[in-house]
Each structure stands twice: as structure tokens, then as C-alpha cells.
Simulated scan of single mutants.
Amino acid sequence: MLGFRDPVADAISLLEPRTVIGPNLRAVGEWALRFDTFLHVRIGGLVRGTCWLILEGHEPVLLHAGDTFMLGNPPPYVLASTLDATPRPAEPVWAGADDGLVRIGQESEDDLYLCVGHIGFDEQNAALLTDLLPPLVVVRAADPRGLELGQLIALLAAEVRVAAAGGPLVQNHLAQVLLVHMLRAHAGQTDRPTGWLGALNDDGIGTALRAVHADVAHSWTLNELAEMSHMSRSAFAQSFKKHVGVPPLEYLIQWRMSLARDALARDTMSISELARATGYQSESAFSTAFRRVVGSSPRQFRNLARKPEPASAGSAVSPP
């Protein structure tokens, strides 16, 4: 049986996040760093000072101490002291880090102090999250969630500088907690459909979503989910699509296939067992649904996932 808890925990578990935090940046004077495009999520915040975040296709954003930002599959961007500063590539600057710190200019009590990190996900399921995110989310220090996010950034920055036992583990967990809080903040900032993330803020739709995740093998019907949400069928279907972006039963199928892809890649159960665990009465019905969503049969997908990936010199995560 596939065991799950709630949509956020389930999705992050399937995403298998890999975090690379730091180095921190301390800078004074005029400076600008240009970062290349990248996959998945970068997250960071200012512990002290101010700087500009300049993302292609967006208005420049002036960040202040305590502000936190999240970038989802963004185009190239620049962090700079002023809008007039000429950017230089960030990678060689980051490569010169010393003890978890990159310094630009002489040390000063008034210098900027920035903490940034990269969170990468399993490619098979990355779209569960990245499809929900805009290129840029900013949470100000004065926002309802700003204080707790600022505290998390400060903790993360401190962990990067201290070579203590268990440091990488602490950084990884803090980064994931920061990610969840940023996702909650984003869901509260927008009126657009934000998938399972935004739907959790709605009592009725959130109840149905949690029920689906708690028992994915159940043969859910639109009537059952609507009754659980204390709505009529039509009102539930309309509200669900407004919040999540797809109809209820289509969401159910997509989530089942996400779980199936993960189980097949891990080769943890037979296809017939997996069919029953994801709510299908027969292996053929499961295979038909899997092929429609994924584009290959379960056996083809599993056989391909079993093949060892060739070693790649470029597999390391790039600097934030």
C-alpha cells in the first residue's frame, strides 16, 4: 500500500529535494553579479542591507533586510547594489568563496549580508511544484509571514558560516522548511490557480484534497468529494478547478500517475500491485491510464528507469 499524509508533505517527498546552500555574500560599495538561468528553485533573503534583484522580463525589485525571495525556473537575473552597476558573471566570484563566505569590498559594519541557496528536484516529478510557481515571489519583512521567513534566513546564514557537526543536515532541513513557508506565502498572495498548494487554504477543497491523498486507492467519485466539501457537485467542480487549475477527477488521475512513476522508478512493487494501490481494478485499466498521462506503458517506464545513467562531469549543482 502506498502511504501518504497531506498534499504538501506528499509532493515534497516525491520531489526528493536536493539543497545547496551558500556561500553567503557580504558586499559593500558598487557591485553587480549576473546569474545564469537554471532549473527548479532558488531561494534566499537579506540578513542585512539592501540590494536590487533584476530579473529579465520583470521590473527590478529593491530588497531590504528581512525580505525573502524565491525564483522558480527563472531566466538569468542580477543581484546588484545599484541599477547602474555593470554586472559581472557570478560563477567565478562564487568559486572564490572562503569558509562559506564571498566578500566584495572591504569588511564593514554596514555591508550587505545575503544568504542564497538552490533546491533541485527529481526531474520526473519536478513539475508538481515548478508548474505552480511564477519566476519570482518576494515576501517582505512586514508581510504576515515575513518575520518567520526572515528568522529562517538568519538561521540558515549562520549555519553556512559555522562548521559544526551535522551542518549540512541542518541546512537541508532549514531550506525545506523555508521552501514550505515560501509556498504558503505565495499561495496567500495570489488569486490565480496555484494547484494543490492554494487549494489547501480553502476549507472545502482542502478537505477533499487531503482525503484523496490519505487514501489514493479509494474509488473516489465526484459525489463523494462534493459531499465531503459540503457543496453541490457543480459548485465543487467549479471551485476545485478555480483553485487547482484542473477538474477534480483529472487531478486524482495525475496524482496517481505521479505516485506510480515514483514507485516504478524505485521498483518497489509489481505492476499489478501498483494498479491496486493507486485505485485501479485491473492492471490493464491502470496501464491505459498510465500511458495516457505519461506517454509510455508502465513496463517501458520501469525498464527505462532501471538503466543506469551515464556519469556526467556537469552533474553538479551550479552555484546560487
Rank of each mutant, 00 (worst) to 15 (best):
I54T: 09
I271S: 04
D110C: 02
L71C: 05
L147S: 14
A175L: 05
E224I: 00
N125I: 08
D203W: 06
I271T: 11
S318M: 12
G188T: 05
S13V: 09
T221P: 08
F286Q: 13
G29Q: 14
L53D: 03
R192D: 15
H118M: 07
L156G: 01
V293W: 01
S272T: 15
P319D: 06
L169R: 09
H218L: 07
S232V: 13
L133W: 08
D111I: 00
P87Q: 10
S282N: 03
T207D: 00
R5W: 11
V102T: 05
P247V: 09
Q106F: 04
T278P: 14
A126D: 03
P310W: 12
L259Y: 06
A142R: 14
L136I: 11
T288G: 02
P74W: 09
A305F: 09
N201Q: 14
A163E: 15
N201A: 14
A311K: 15
T207V: 00
G245D: 09
D67Q: 04
P23Q: 11
D84Q: 13
V28K: 03
S219T: 14
V180H: 09
A275N: 14
V93F: 07
Y113A: 14
D10M: 07
A208K: 08
S315W: 08
E159Y: 03
R42F: 09
A185M: 03
I271D: 08
S234Y: 07
R292I: 02
A316W: 05
A85L: 07
S219W: 07
D67A: 03
Q171C: 10
E16N: 06
R256K: 10
L128G: 08
G279S: 07
S234K: 15
V244R: 08
L156R: 03
V180R: 15
F4Y: 05
G150P: 01
R145G: 01
N172Q: 15
R233S: 11
R266I: 10
V93D: 01
G167R: 15
I253F: 02
V116N: 04
N223D: 09
L174E: 01
T86N: 07
R299A: 12
H40S: 09
L62I: 10
R5I: 15
K307G: 02
L169W: 05
E250V: 13
H181A: 07
L112C: 04
P7R: 11
K241W: 04
A235F: 11
G57R: 13
R140P: 02
A237L: 05
W31M: 09
G146N: 09
G117Y: 04
V170N: 02
E30G: 02
V160P: 01
Q171P: 00
T37M: 03
S287C: 06
I21T: 15
R292T: 13
R140F: 05
G3A: 10
R210M: 05
A208T: 01
T68E: 00
A260C: 06
L39W: 07
A226N: 03
R103Q: 13
A27V: 15
Y251V: 02
R18H: 09
C51W: 15
G188F: 01
